[in-house]
Design a protein around this nucleic acid. Sequence first.
RNA 1: GCCGAAGUGGUGGAAUGGCAGACGCGACGGACUCAAAAUCCGUUGAGGGCAACCUCGUGCGGGUUCAAGUCCCGCCUUCGGCACCA
Length: 800
Amino acid sequence: MAKSYDSKKTEKKWQNYWYDNHVFDVKEDPSKPKFYGLVEFPYPSGAGLHVGHVRAFSSLEIVSRKKRLEGYNVLFPMGYDAFGLPTENYAIQTKTHPRIVTDRNIKHFTEQLKSLGFSFSWDRVVDTTDPNYYKWTQWIFLQLFKKGLAYKSTTLVNFCPSCNVVLANEESQQGVCDRCGTSVVQKEKDVWFLKIRDYAERLLDGLNHVNFPERIKVEQQNWIGKSTGAIVTFPLEIEDKKLSVDVFTTRPDTIYGATFMVLAPEHPIIKDNIEAFNNSEEIIKYQESALSKKEFDRVQVNKDKTGILVEGLMAINPITKKTIPVFTADYVMMDYGTGAIMGVPAHDQRDWDFAKKFNIPIIEVIKGNVDVNKEPYCAKEGEGILVNSPLINGLTVPKAIEKIINEMQKLKVGYPKVDYKMKDWAFNRQRYWGEPIPIINCPKCGQVPMDEKDLPLELPYLEDFSPSDEALSPLAKCTDWVNTTCPKCGGKATRETDTMPQWAGSSWYFLRYQSPNDDKHVVDPEAYKYWGQVDWYNGGMEHVTRHLIYSRFWNQFLYDIGVVTNEEPYLRRSMQGLILGADGEKMSKSLGNVVNPDDVINEFGADVLRTFILFIGDYEKPAPWSEDGIKGSDRFIKRLWNLQDYLVDDCDTSDVNLDVVIKKVSDDIESCKFNTAIAAIMETVNAFYSRGKVTKDEYLTVCKLVYPIAPHITSEIYNILTGEYIEQSSWPKFDPKNLIEDSIEIPVQILGKVRGKVNIKTDSTEEEVVEKVKELGLLDGKKIIKIIYVKNRIINFIAK
RNA sequence: GCCGAAGUGGUGGAAUGGCAGACGCGACGGACUCAAAAUCCGUUGAGGGCAACCUCGUGCGGGUUCAAGUCCCGCCUUCGGCACCA
């Protein structure tokens, strides 16, 4: 009998071997093909590693270990995205400097990751809060600034009164702060933006050149939200001034049905001419109430339309030359299109609701089978024929759009226009724990970029880093640091005191891993020439519209300025599903359903945890944790170990086709079907048990197949059996010839129902199979009308 | 409202249009044990039959096909994302 397996001792032994000997460190090696596998680096929170992290990192951990055995030179790095609010808030609460908190958390995470036996290249760890790292984050910002892609602008921003911080749109969904749940308020602020909109078209186009799951592509496309339409200029009648307003529409063909115009409450036309309106007081009141509404309330779809007629202001439909009333209403947003729309009530639900409320005429211009006075006719794209539209009557919608835009261009009242929903990226926080923005404000020269030689601009070590009351960064209080001289004129100047947002450091970290210690480049060109694009990137669905777009944007920018030579950073993307609590709910402290990986390792060992987290279900789908389920993985690991008792020098091995298993496991790993890969190995182990014998060759092959999943126990078994290290072996190969069995059993159907089985030689002809079936007597007394035979699959008789 | 994913035993989940329920958990039975745990072996979708077998069965209703969990049409439910986006 083999000694019972001691997971604690064995796992520690192999972890020491791997990490002390730097087994997974890599260097550029042109003699080998490269594989760059990347998992989203964690935010090192105080709570430590979560089982969700284990699942997220496991996919490429498995792939990396397999690829190494296949002869690839594998870069599989790990790092920490450590700037951010939770650490800062924790630091404020506990009066401990965020640097100390961060270092402590990173240390804890590293120990936990090593206790799982992950094969990261520990010599390449990056930390976004390290000045040697954020030097390059700042450098990239300077390049963006110099190219005019970073600008400061006064806008209404989402502001969290509790965190005292300006939030990005993505951080304030549902009108509450992502971090603390406080209701967000609107506040006017001077903030930095990155012109990600300039890259909208390329971010869309790039999706055609990468291997991302379809739903990720769709989500990014929706986020970017491209719409093709036209700008149409409507002249205004207002006292004696000659003014006009531009509207954006995706349906210029419906211009004949435009019976009113709506301006966003913030529209400058209103502000600039307020004295000219007969009801200016009412308008001002309406503006104020609209602006005081939280963005969330304002965009509630189903609420009643509100608005107010602007008396004394009329617009002229540039095609019909008819005069139409102008309203202001908060269902029109200043930050999309031009902040002004033409209202076509017959063919748009919102316009229809508004027209009904204000008794505005409704003119049908697309023929449909509904009465547009009772409900709008909102035809699907491409449907319908134009009516009541002299220039384009009888045309289909696409033809009408084309012709009317031509007419508008001739008349100089309109032109084609593409717009995007995606807004520019609000790129700053009024917080301490972030990358300082390397800009100097000079009273004479304005915003002056720091000299690149002076980077990094280090974050000063503050004793008091709590936020101030006026939405200013705590850095503002550090006058020694703030006061400086202008790099341009040498006069007195002050530093920008806002810091960069959470997403800055993670927007380029995949490059830093390629040359983590380089102090001359963002990425060493030689290293980049070798590693280049990430071959396979795994991460969470929650980052698809933030990190995954931001980092693609930065990479495209770095491509434009010649830092990298590929437009897209990631060739392939996969994502893991959430691990839910045993109750099927999302794990959370308040529900008390959180599983701590340390506890699981302590009870079962890292190999069991790794196996179970992959066996739990479809990798992309959410899966509930199960205390009972993990026992199955524990049993499997023990059965693998106890197979040592069944070792024989030689035996009949024809009952187990290992070539099929090798192919199945290899293919399944490459397509993230880890659960069925493990199931196939379990079946094989079960077969050895029921045979009661296993040869050394078989055992070693199975160990290699399990090695990526459970590397400790398989390293141990391999070492016991061969005296060698499994890392020096190679991934098992299968012989395609052996995938085909000599004879197979196929079902026999009569009228589509299985009535029996028949053993046939592989690739038998229909006649041979029919002969066999007749021998079985399944067709006795039946008249065969038709036979459907699918080779090596099935035979179906249509018989009476 | 729009976009996307999904709905299969007691349970987590498998199935290039070709034997539904692989593999695991749980349950039941057996071996070992004084006994239990552990381990090993077996049974396990529902209903009927002594049996060989038969009938039903993948959210609901239709359809295509020799054959549908899988394809098509129409619904219901759940979960994710977007949302007065002109």
